[in-house]
Design a protein around this nucleic acid. Structure first.
Length: 371
RNA sequence: GCGGGUGUCGUCAAGUGGUUAAGACCUCGGAUUGUGGUUCCGAUAUACAUGGGUUCGAAUCCCAUCAUCCGCC
């Protein structure tokens, strides 16, 4: 049987758990560590697929929950799958809908079978189970699909966290049984909230599956940074070393530095596009906000060392003007910049790992982004 | 020239005799983490057109001046 996925570890740091690799998928390779932009409704907000491609994105994330409710995943299947649907020929990852049901749906009823919820937009009732999620994700046709999990809130008590974790494990088994397409990699998700023994247990259970990659979920749900960091540090090394590790929903440049240091290979986050919509942008000198008056006559690009479309063509003064006038182009330019910045940031970490200098890079930029 | 209206922070605008003169925009910070697309939180201001008068007390009442708007000649 043909092998559709392959993860090759190119280098492991001697001073930390940082590592650099190449993850091969049916739609091309991903150079890890990598940051993945989020395109919830099969579009990275304010950007065309071409514009996303020009940022250097190697893979994008989309979403079962949203595409199931709108567009309809049968329609996308009939169209020929998400790559053709959105004219994107690189790898795609879809989230399972578990997190969205947890964070977005107003009315939801979780049972052993699955989750019943209402579409907050029109009130219609729906049901997603591990089997339904697998069917949805196979219809969408992403390269990487995620297990249907139950994400516990923060804070939460031990019993709730344990019950959610155990259900996630039982659902994981059902996901693997329901998944049929060998051209899709199913990543299990570690849960366990913020309890050491639960996280360790979940990492152990999840690792018993011979998956193409493994994810850590249930973080960035409102917990303090040091707590998040502790659980990433605890969990990541417990996952199989020869497979990519994906930290879901993270993060900031500092989150990337910490995650990579602890052995994470993949990240996704809405931050670059959401921040863009709020005017803030990343630079190699830290985070700034285009709304600030100091930029009104600034003829420099957003970042002088950035090669993105926005930086090669436009000034801070012009982009600030567009933003103040609420022109959508401002959001596009800032999104392009922020996405390209985080991708380049992850690829710079990769290069530093290959050079054996990641830890110095970590120290330097940890301070820059500490604020 | 005559008649009438209006003058409160950079802008808009509450307040019509009584303690530190609302609020919004702007400006300046902060937040945002597997996305309900312009959000949320906080901070900052030499502001009652000018000069008199009435009153225990005036942004508020009276007079004059100036500015501005409308109408008429």
């Amino acid at each position: 049987m043909q092998q559709y996925f392959n993860f090759k570890l190119l280098k492991k740091s001697e001073k930390s758990n940082a590592r650099a690799g190449i993850f091969l998928t049916p739609h091309g390779e991903i150079r890890t560590p990598i940051f993945m932009p989020v395109g919830t409704n099969s579009a990275v907000k304010t950007l065309t697929s071409d514009q996303v491609k020009d940022t250097g994105a190697q893979i994008i994330l989309s979403n079962s929950y949203h595409l199931y409710l709108r567009a309809g995943t049968k329609r996308i299947k009939k169209f020929g799958g998400i790559h053709k649907w959105m004219n994107w020929d690189k790898p795609v990852l879809t989230d399972s809908g578990g997190f969205q049901v947890f964070s977005l749906a107003k009315l939801r009823k979780i049972t052993e079978d699955g989750v019943e919820f209402q579409d907050p937009k029109d009130g219609s009732k729906h049901f997603i189970s591990p089997e339904v999620s697998m069917e949805i994700q196979q219809d969408i046709g992403a390269d990487i699909i995620m297990a249907f999990d139950e994400c516990a809130p923060y804070p939460c008590d031990y019993e709730t966290a344990k019950a959610a974790m155990e259900r996630t494990h039982r659902w994981l088994d059902r996901c693997f049984k329901a998944k049929t397409n060998p051209q899709q990699a199913l990543f299990p998700i570690v849960q366990g909230a913020f309890f050491d023994d639960l996280r360790m247990e979940s990492a152990r259970v999840v690792s018993t599956y011979n998956a193409e990659g493994y994810a850590i979920g249930g973080v960035s749900v409102g917990e303090p940074d040091d707590i998040k960091n502790h659980f990433v540090e605890l969990t990541a090394p417990l996952l199989p070393e020869n497979k990519p590790r994906y930290l879901m929903g993270v993060g900031t440049p500092i989150d990337l530095l910490d995650g990579i240091k602890h052995g994470i290979d993949m990240f996704d986050c809405v931050l670059p596009t959401r921040n863009a919509r709020h005017g803030s942008f990343f630079t190699w000198e830290g985070k700034k906000n285009i709304k600030n008056k100091q930029f009104q006559d600034d003829e420099r690009p957003l970042d002088e060392n950035c090669q993105c479309y926005a930086c090669k063509n436009h000034s801070r003064a012009y982009i600030r003007h567009l933003f103040k006038c609420q022109e959508n182009t401002a959001l596009t330019l800032l999104s392009i910049h922020n996405i390209q910045f985080l991708i380049e940031f992850s690829q710079r970490c990769r290069q530093e790992i290959l050079n054996g200098t990641f830890e110095e890079f970590y120290d330097k930029y940890y301070d820059v982004f500490k604020k």
